[in-house]
Design a binder for these strands. Sequence first.
RNA 1: GGGCGGUUAGCUCAGCUGGUUAGAGCGCCUGCCUUACAAGCAGGAGGUCGCAGGUUCGAGUCCUGCACUGCCCACCA
Length: 810
Amino acid sequence: REKFVERVWEWKREYGGAILDQMKRLGASVDWDREYFTMDDNLSHAVREVFVRLYEEGLIYRGNYIVNWCPWHETAISDLEVKHEDVPGKLWEIRYPVIGSSEFITVATTRPETMLGDTAIAVNAKDERYKHLHGKKVLLPLMNREIPIITDELAQPEFGTGAVKVTPAHDPNDFQAGLRHNLEQINIMDSRAHMNQNAGAYAGLDRFEARKRVLHDLRDQGFLVAEKDYALAIGKCDRCGTVIEPRLSEQWFIKIKPLADRAIDAAESGEITIVPENYRTIYLNWMYNIHDWCVSRQLWWGHRIPAWTCKGCNDVIVARETPTKCTKCGGTNLEQVPDVLDTWFSSGLLPFTTLGWPEKTRDQAVFYPTTLLITAYEILFFWVARMIMFGCHFMQGHEQDPAIKKASGWADKKNDSVPFREVYIHALVRDAERQKMSKTKGNVVDPLEVINRFGTDATRFTLAAMAAPGTDIAFNESRTDGYRAFANKIWNAARFMFMNVERIQPGLRPVGGQECPPHTGIAGFQAKTLEDRWILSRFNRVAANVNDALTTYRFHEAANSIYDFFWGEFCDWYLELIKPRLNFEERGDKSAAQVACANLVSLFDAALRLLHPVMPFITEEIWQAMYEGKPALKSIALAPFPQADEKQFDLAAETEMAILQDLIVSIRNLRAELKVEPKVKVPIEVFAHEPEIRRMIDHNRGAIERLATVEKIAFVESSLAKVAGARSTARFDVHVLYERKIDVASECERLKKELEKFEKGIANGQRQLGNENFLAKAPQNVVEGLRKQQQELAVLKEKTLSKLKEIGCQ
RNA sequence: GGGCGGUUAGCUCAGCUGGUUAGAGCGCCUGCCUUACAAGCAGGAGGUCGCAGGUUCGAGUCCUGCACUGCCCACCA
């Protein structure tokens, strides 16, 4: 209390009246005499209502139990607020003299100071070693108190000496045993975990000081038998790190089982879905094993428990309004219970108290349940689970407005008492060593610093791209660096576009980029050429992909998909392919250039909109520039998000383009194999397996010449499969006419490695194709595919063999 | 003690419902300042998918066990 008040005055001195003013503005009244902050707002109202209802339903009880006690905060805390930490400790063995005998009985403990509160020794009834001691008493050392030897299953024969000391006021197990045997409960510590008068000579000592003294005295008097190293999980207060003391005190509890049952049902029935699904298991597991919730806190701020004690008869009255007289004895001397509620008690009510509960409001009909809760798993039990329990309990019978429900896409759900339909648990960002970031460890990755170094978009994109569900993100700078390059790529592609617009048609703006009437595909795109048809199809395909990924919370898939499209298809291929058309000065076809330019602008606009969620700043910047700073909409964020238009899918174009790309890459490969000088244009021979393929290649010969640095394409009428140095595929054979300059030894090694790979593939395939089961059971397309592959591999093997022969290699 | 993950290229990670030769970024090697981009382009090397079994025509993917590793939960003296 002193610490707390001191801190408040510190704030007051530092900030003048600002904090108090602020709190008053928020509706708080501060009662300095009693040092309570009282929030008289709707939430307080609802909290009181919830408490009273639970009490009336018999779901709240009060009593003396062993609770987790934080001596620093001087309050009880809940199980969830205790963090267990493995620390090396000691196990001490103490012997207690049996009265009327020269025997001793030895017990073990990790908290020897609690022996001062022992009220029994327990042995197991079945334990032969202690049968003769049943019913006897021992003399408690240091305290010289006679305590009984009891038989109880608390003592397990196989553990330690088989005998255990019983301290009902300082251990939950002992407490239960104490109840079974009607033992005295001696509380030996005060709220700060200092020894009280029940600890005799040790009164006033801090618990750890007392431990030292007790051990010293036990040793002195010959009662300490052994001291062993022992690993123990020590409970600490989540907030202050103080070692928790299990301590007997009067607290308020919620009987949680009935609430948990509904919360279990909501998740099991699918009325609430948790993404990713493994968290559903974790959630359910916790719910199945839930303990009653200690909700009272001995703090100086918070929502006070609406309960009053009658000074006359000691009866406790729970009421919505401050009672004026005792309902039992009629006395008027009533005092409110000083305890406040666990902060998660009121937090758990958020979903409906914010909507005017307990009144039935329009807001509830519209906004309850919400569609989605996004959070990290740290808070799953503290908050999410409590919101579900309270929501399912207090909103029973609630019905969402049917129109709203339908529009949100949840018409199939029956249970409207749930606070939300879906819970998305996002990853936690850890440091590069997978450690959870913490200020005390000093391993915090400062996002502002990362942003300064790599940019906001790159930082955001990294998190999206690494957000594969179910695992945490170890923040990795090299990835961010890569995405900074991506942002740069977008920027440069934009520069390319702007340069061309400036040259070809200044003032050109995207068609429908803001209104986009069909809201699907790309409006105003005139697919004139193969690359046009291809990119239009690809864009729609990617848009479908991205939309699908986003609705299923697969953010990394969305990010990667658009990354691959923008860089690998749009920049690497499309922009290269349209350059000749844009370059009308050379070709003299300005109208073709204008079409190409308009297409480019519309496509870019659509791509920006698709990119915007993962690259918000650069896309906004470029988008604004595309409209010369005067778009009809204020921001790209308001422009429609691209949806796929199936009519713009073009499988034929995608197939043809794939062949063209394959051909160009093949030629590049051959050039590399032949060590052709980069700038030297080479003549090639091509054999097309189908007339349409020949037509397509012929149509796009300009592209091949440019992108593969080819001088002249000659079509031949027969297969080149047997020709040394040629490359053949299912669709075409290609041969680069160039005299090789090679390093025989290294080439030989490379070819041999390649041969090995082909042979392995062939052996593999033959084994499968020779298997009748495979032929019978595998789907047709898989078998076909394998056959085709085998043919190709056979050709490749032949080629490699002949190449090896050609360069004179074994 | 109970539960949930992870183990794939030198590093950081993808790989959804089992199906042709397992991918990306960074790093590495070779070559290019090709008029959007050298923070780039083209090409390349590099993996018996932790181990051992099993199911299947077919397993990185499904099942069992083990090892290592991380996290959460837990009233064991």
